[in-house]
């Protein structure tokens, strides 16, 4: 599904990803943890194709194709979805209008007709119900005045509608109360299938109680420095990252 090899990426000449390797196979859930500033959001953005970051070395392969040069919208059409850590506001564009534009853009790329208003409405209603978003919410301006939890639920709502092949969740759990966390996790789990994968970036092991990862990676200073199972997440939450730093020092 996704093969990242020796990836280096920088912004304004500052190298952030320093030779990162990661492989995600179909059906797998990978958790990525790591201290603030390690490069987790950068990794998501680079996979999604944000061109303010310059990829200086390495390759990103998605479903057998090197996508380094692909525009972000083309990557989205191929099934890559990213739930933003900080979703942006778009005044005057409603939640409904936005998802409509998104769905139809993807369909157009696949050579399909727009969904009819009836089909669109049905799809939106169904997914909104799953994320417990009401009708009033759907006609609000995108992310404007949303609470932290509403923003994240809206991200997962969009994901549920778009049904991506690879979902990258960047700290989707941060700032969620326990109910919202359950709703969000439910949205993610509903998408689980043998041919879909997810990368879940988080600081908290509690999310991983709901979304159970196959692998847990530690991202530190632009590299994946440790990989383990679910127990690694528990250890990290308990002990922090200092022991990882120690280990790294010892190995060098």
């Amino acid at each position: 599904m996704l093969k990242i090899k020796d990836l280096k990426a920088s912004i304004d000449g500052k190298e952030i990803l320093k030779g990162l390797n990661l492989e995600v196979k179909p059906g797998e859930v990978h958790a990525v943890m790591g201290p603030n500033g390690a490069g987790k959001s950068t990794l998501s953005a680079v996979i999604a194709g944000k061109d303010t970051f310059e990829v200086t070395e390495g390759t990103i392969e998605f479903q057998g194709e090197i996508i380094n040069e692909l525009a972000p919208e083309d990557r989205a059409h191929k099934g890559i979805f990213m739930s933003f850590q900080h979703p942006v506001e778009i005044p005057g564009v409603t939640v409904t209008n936005f998802i409509k534009a998104s769905v139809n853009a993807k369909r157009a790329a696949e050579g399909k007709e727009d969904l009819t208003p009836g089909e669109m409405l049905k799809l939106i209603k169904e997914k909104a119900a799953m994320l417990e978003l009401d009708r009033k919410f759907l006609s609000r301006s995108l992310n404007q005045g949303f609470s932290g939890g509403e923003k994240k639920r809206n991200e997962i709502f969009q994901m549920a509608v778009l049904e991506p092949t690879l979902a990258i969740l960047d700290e989707t759990d941060s700032g969620l109360d326990i109910d919202a966390l359950r709703i969000v996790a439910n949205g993610v789990n509903n998408l689980k299938s043998p041919n879909r994968s997810a990368i879940v970036i988080t600081h908290y092991q509690r999310l991983l109680d709901y979304i159970v990862p196959d692998f847990v990676h530690v991202l530190f200073e632009g590299r994946i420095v440790k990989t383990g199972g679910k127990e690694l997440a528990m250890k990290l939450e308990e002990k922090g990252y200092d022991w990882i730093k120690e280990e790294l020092k010892a190995n060098n």
Partner: peptide, 26 residues
Amino acid sequence: DQLFYCNQRGIDTEKAVALIVNGFGK
């Protein structure tokens, strides 16, 4: 960031601008 957000959702830049402008003038 607004443009990238739209792009990430499959909306190309031309359409994103139109969407944002229409929202602005709503």
